[in-house]
């Protein structure tokens, strides 16, 4: 249990970042969250670079889910 919730949350958060519904997140999209989250631009850039596993500058739903599930399960263990 929890895995479906986790995926739902990941999808929800992806859409929070991908406000234009492009299907991917850019660093600019991430930096836009600066207004909504208590994180600095540097932190958000760091988050993006960590999640962007292949470093191509685009965050796919898959990369986002991977990062989120890593966080999710490390929190629950």
């Amino acid at each position: 249990p929890g895995q479906l919730d986790m995926l739902k949350k990941a999808q929800e958060f992806f859409q929070t970042c991908d406000t234009e519904g492009k299907g991917f997140i850019t660093k600019k999209d991430m930096q836009r969250l600066h207004n909504e989250l208590p994180l600095s631009l540097e932190d958000l850039e760091d988050v993006f670079d960590t999640l962007d596993a292949d470093g191509n500058g685009f965050l796919t739903p898959e990369e986002f889910n991977n990062g989120f599930s890593h966080f999710f399960f490390s929190q629950n263990n």
Partner: peptide, 29 residues
């Protein structure tokens, strides 16, 4: 070792990021 520090920091920043998103959505963490 700066690299090790960067790795640990990234993990913390990631946790911070997702926790912030969680509290933004639900109103509480």
């Amino acid at each position: 070792d700066p690299n090790m520090k960067a790795g640990a920091t990234s993990e913390g920043v990631l946790a911070n990021f997702f926790n912030s998103l969680l509290s933004k959505k639900t109103g509480s963490p």
